[in-house]
């Protein structure tokens, strides 16, 4: 009691103290206070509104740009494979296929790798290693994608073509996925690896931070039950961080779906669907980047918008799926936290 009033007294002074505690200090609810509140409120509202408007404008423009292609090419665009503007052939199937395959392969490689890095940095690594490797991993995310694509073109593709692809083909060649490769080393597989390099640092850094927040007493509880380190990871750390890791993975997937330039540089610009990962192809994003600048045909430009609309729809579905999955996890933890 006395301690509390003691610390307040310099501000109050004897007069204020005499007026009792409610008149202490400046009264709230003055004009300026109310003005500040209102300003903050309207600023926030305006900012949110702006985001919605921009989103709406982009949607409108994409759909508007695509309307010519919608009416001329119809829904068949989605399943038509060939993209040859000179001959008036426009089909999105190659790029939808390329987008799905490249994203899947990227996630299959990147997510386990990123989670392992996150686990290593959060649980196993010594403080020294942690403080050196952690920032390095994050710096990987700072490499501009053009440079990464360039590196993929100059270094990674020839290497893959000379070593990795022949090896994979000879060991797993019975699967059509690992069929005979192109001569350049450019293709879906190379694009997936480049995207993996872009996705891993994001997911790894987020999961590391998530793993570090798993309560120590839960881990102690598991350790005290004679659990091995792996059992603690599997039984306590991963489940506690699961919803966040899923969110991180979807963030990474969003990046992989949308990345255009680096993909374009290493995917080989194929116009057909190849079953083999080592074949060339394209993603929606890479085709948009390639064709959006200066196309002689109006229909081609409209078809590019059509590709954009498909990409937007995919991202939207992905986002909704991510939210649904996270809600399920959160519902679980809400039950858990009850």
């Amino acid at each position: 009691m006395s301690g509390g009033s003691g610390s307040l007294s310099p501000a109050l002074g004897p007069a204020a103290a005499a007026r009792g505690p409610w008149s202490a200090g400046r009264a709230r609810g003055t004009k300026t206070d109310r003005f500040g509140d209102a300003l903050l409120k309207s600023l926030c509202a305006a900012a949110s509104l702006l985001a919605v408007v921009i989103l709406g404008a982009i949607f409108y423009q994409v759909l508007d740009g695509a309307s010519a292609a919608f009416s001329q090419l119809g829904i068949g665009f989605l399943v038509h494979e060939v993209w040859q503007p000179n001959f008036g052939h426009f089909g999105a199937a190659t790029f939808i296929y390329g987008t799905v395959v490249v994203s899947l392969v990227t996630m299959v490689i990147a997510v386990p790798l990123a989670i392992s890095i996150g686990l290593y940095l959060s649980t196993t690594a010594s403080g020294r290693v942690r403080s050196v490797v952690g920032p390095l991993v994050e710096m990987l995310a700072a490499i501009p994608s053009v440079i990464l694509g360039f590196w993929g073109l100059i270094v990674l593709a020839p290497f893959l073509q000379a070593h990795a692809e022949p090896f994979l083909h000879s060991t797993l060649g019975f699967l059509p996925l690992f069929g005979k490769g192109e001569t350049t080393g450019l293709g879906l597989f190379t694009a997936s690896l480049i995207l993996t390099i872009m996705v891993v640092p994001i997911v790894a850094a987020i999961s590391r931070d998530l793993f570090l927040t798993v309560p120590k007493d839960l881990q102690d509880g598991a350790i005290a039950l004679g659990a091995t380190r792996w059992e603690v990871v599997r039984g306590v750390i991963l489940p506690s961080a699961a919803s966040g890791v899923v969110a991180a993975a979807f963030l990474g997937l969003g990046r992989a779906l949308g990345e255009a330039i680096a993909t374009l540089q290493v995917i080989g610009g194929g116009n057909f669907i190849h079953a083999s990962l080592f074949g060339t192809g394209g993603t929606l994003a890479s085709r948009i980047a390639e064709d959006a600048l200066g196309t002689p045909y109006a229909l081609q430009l409209s078809a590019v918008f059509y590709l954009g609309a498909i990409l937007l729809a995919m991202e939207l579905v992905l986002n909704l799926a991510a939210q649904a999955i996270m809600r399920r996890f959160d519902a679980f933890s809400a039950v858990a936290a009850r």
Partner: peptide, 24 residues
């Protein structure tokens, strides 16, 4: 075995809390 000051059950079901270590 050890029991701590603050109860630290796993965010799992009652059954799984107990069955976890035996399964391991």
């Amino acid at each position: 075995g050890m029991v701590f000051q603050r109860p630290n059950p796993f965010p799992k079901s009652i059954y799984d809390n107990i069955a976890w270590a035996p399964r391991n």
